[in-house]
Write a protein that binds this DNA or RNA. Structure first.
Ligand code: MN
Ligand code: MN
Length: 298
DNA sequence: GTCCGAC
DNA sequence: GTCGGACAACGCAAT
DNA sequence: ATTGCG
C-alpha cells in the first residue's frame, strides 16, 4: 500500500496519506475509512458547516493517542478552503476555517486523523443572531431510556409553543434537540428563552431532570444543558464523527425513531451509517427550510 | 498531521 | 537530522 | 475576581 497519494475531489487535488493507519483499534477503522466517510456524507453535512467558524478536535494518532482542539486556521491549509474572521467577545479576532465543499472535508480529515467537527449556532454574517437553538440532554450517568422519554417530553413543550424541532444522536450519552430559527433575536434573548423552556421541562420531569449547572447538585439526573446557546459556543455538528469506542456519529434522526426504546445515542457509527443512508431519506430534509419564530415569554 | 525551534 | 511541544480560550452563572 | 462547567 502506498503511503501517500493525490486524489481529485471536485475541482481540487488533495493529498491523502497513511490510509491504512488504524485510528479506532477495536473496530479496525482506518484513516482511509474516516476520509471516505467524510467524502460520502459531505453533501449532507455541508449545509450545517457553511459560513460557520469551525472548531476541530483532532486525534492524529487515533483514539489511543492525544487529542486536541484547533480553532485557528493553520497557515498550511490550502487557500481554497474559506477562512472566516471571528470576533471575540472581549476584543480581538481569530481566523478560522469553514467548509463549503467535499474537498474541504477530505483535506480536513486527512489532516486530522480522527476528525470531530464543532460548529457555532450562528453564521459569520450575523454572528450574534443564532439560526438554531439547542437543548443538549446530558445524563449524569450512562444513557438510559429515560433520556429518550425526556426528549419526547421536550418535543411536546416545544410544539405547544409552535416550535418545530429536530433530534440527533450525539454519539455519546444523550441527544441534541435542535430548533431552527429565524434570525430575529440575539443570543441573550434566545438563551433566556431556552432557559425558560428548560425550566418548564424540569417542572414536567422533576425526578428525571435538572437545570443545575453544578455537577454536585444534579443528583444523578439528566442535565438540560442550554449553555450551548451562547455567542461563540459550539456543538458537535450533524454527521460529525466522535472520538469514542465504536466510531459513533452525531446522526440526525426522525422523531419517530424515538418512539422505540431500541434507539441509542451511539446507534449510528462509521460502520453502519451507509446502510442507514441508503435506505432512509434525509430525516432533517426540512431543517434548512424551517425558520421558527421564537416568541419571547420573559 | 504538520510546523517550528532547540539540541 | 531528530526530538518534543503546540495545535482553544470561551462564555456564562453562581459565588 | 474567581470558579465550575461544557
Ligand atoms: Mn451533551
Ligand atoms: Mn452539554
Amino acid at each position: 500500500m502506498s503511503k501517500s497519494q493525490t486524489v481529485k475531489v471536485g475541482n481540487h487535488e488533495v493529498e491523502i496519506s497513511s490510509l491504512d493507519k488504524v485510528l479506532f483499534p477495536d473496530e479496525g477503522v482506518t484513516k482511509g475509512d474516516v476520509i471516505e466517510y467524510y467524502s460520502d456524507i459531505a453533501d449532507l453535512a455541508l449545509p450545517y458547516l457553511e459560513d460557520r467558524a469551525l472548531t476541530f478536535k483532532r486525534y492524529p494518532d487515533g483514539l489511543k493517542g492525544e487529542g486536541f482542539y484547533q480553532k485557528h486556521a493553520p497557515d498550511y491549509a490550502p487557500d481554497w478552503i474559506k477562512r472566516v474572521d471571528f470576533d471575540k467577545r472581549e476584543g480581538g479576532s481569530m481566523t478560522q476555517l469553514s467548509a463549503h465543499a467535499e474537498a474541504d472535508l477530505v483535506w480536513m480529515a486527512n489532516n486530522a486523523g480522527i476528525l470531530v467537527i464543532h460548529a457555532p449556532l450562528a453564521r459569520t454574517d450575523k454572528p450574534d443572531h443564532p439560526d438554531v437553538m439547542v437543548f443538549d440532554l446530558d445524563p449524569s450517568e450512562d444513557y438510559s431510556d429515560t433520556v429518550r422519554k425526556v426528549a419526547l417530553e421536550l418535543k411536546g413543550i416545544l410544539e405547544e409553543r409552535g416550535l418545530k424541532s429536530f433530534v440527533k444522536t450525539t454519539g455519546s450519552r444523550g441527544f441534541h434537540i435542535c430548533v431552527p430559527l429565524r434570525r430575529d433575536h440575539d443570543f441573550q434573548e434566545m438563551r433566556d428563552e431556552s432557559r425558560r423552556i428548560a425550566k418548564e421541562l424540569e417542572e414536567h420531569c422533576p425526578d428525571a431532570t435538572t437545570t443545575q449547572h453544578r455537577k454536585n447538585k444534579r443528583g444523578g439526573k439528566i442535565f438540560i444543558d442550554t449553555y450551548r446557546n451562547a455567542y461563540g459556543q459550539t456543538r458537535v455538528a450533524p454527521y460529525s464523527l466522535r472520538a469514542r469506542d465504536g466510531a459513533p456519529i452525531a446522526c440526525p434522526l426522525d422523531w419517530d425513531e424515538l418512539t422505540s426504546s431500541d434507539i441509542h445515542p451511539q446507534q449510528y457509527t462509521i460502520k453502519n451509517i451507509r446502510q442507514r443512508l441508503g435506505q432512509k431519506t434525509d430525516p432533517w430534509a426540512d431543517f434548512l427550510k424551517t425558520h421558527n419564530r421564537l416568541k419571547l415569554t420573559g
